[in-house]
């Protein structure tokens, strides 16, 4: 029976077609070959489900809002400043922090794949990896922002960062008015993941 859903020039077509079975089969084969330790897979999963996520980025943002010297350090050498907080590692080896202002809103994408600052934001959300986001946000960022219920004033320009190299970008959202004197934790609680990608803005709940 002909199969027209898989390219038979590619070895992956030898695995079962159903994705869950495909992953299971490959894990079994690699484990039998002595190349993969299932316990190591459990540790990797636990790391990205429970340890590394957008609260790291929110910590950086809240600290930058409260401490001008930390903001300066981020501007001068983000890698060094982040390493001092313990934020370094896979998919975050070369960090640049880009600051939103009333004149400029920053937005991050990877049109060619899914590059994203893992040590600060964790695993990218489904929409960040979607064809729709990758295809549209460089051409019509304001229409994409509308999908997130974000509307920018006409005086604000949008700068879209297409991460084409190993440099990873974190958006520093604008600090909302009325948060003067707030604690780091209270500020962190305001900072959403999307605001650090640029598809959200930070607001004080009313």
């Amino acid at each position: 029976m002909p199969h027209d859903t898989h390219d038979h020039d590619h070895p992956h077509a030898l695995l079962p077609p159903q994705p869950a079975l495909r992953v299971k089969a490959l894990e079994t084969i690699l484990t039998q070959k002595g190349l993969v330790d299932p316990a190591a897979l459990d540790v990797i999963i636990d790391t990205y489900e429970n340890k590394i996520g957008p609260r790291n980025g929110a910590h950086v943002v809240a600290k930058a809002w409260r401490e001008p010297e930390f903001l300066d350090a981020l501007r001068t050498d983000a890698d060094a400043a982040l390493l001092e907080l313990g934020y370094y590692g896979r998919q975050g080896e070369h960090m640049v922090v880009v600051e939103n202002t009333p004149q400029m809103h920053n937005l991050v994408v990877c049109t060619l794949c899914s590059c994203y600052p893992w040590p600060l934001l964790g695993i990218p959300p489904g929409w960040y990896k979607s064809d729709a986001y990758r295809a549209r946000v460089v051409r019509e960022p304001r229409a994409v922002l509308a999908d997130f219920d974000v509307r920018l004033p006409d005086e604000t320009a949008v700068r879209v960062w297409d991460s084409t190299a190993e440099v990873r970008y974190l958006v520093l959202p604008m600090r909302p008015a009325g948060t003067e004197g707030w604690s780091e934790q209270a500020l962190m609680d305001l900072v959403s993941r999307d605001s650090m990608i640029g598809t959200g803005v930070v607001q004080v709940p009313v």
Partner: peptide, 22 residues
């Protein structure tokens, strides 16, 4: 359209984290 999702959603199926880790 793009469909936003909650920050709590990390993986969408049990095999996704396994595929990542593998």
């Amino acid at each position: 359209p793009i469909v936003p999702e909650s920050e709590d959603v990390i993986f969408h199926a049990d095999w996704h984290p396994r595929a990542l880790a593998l």
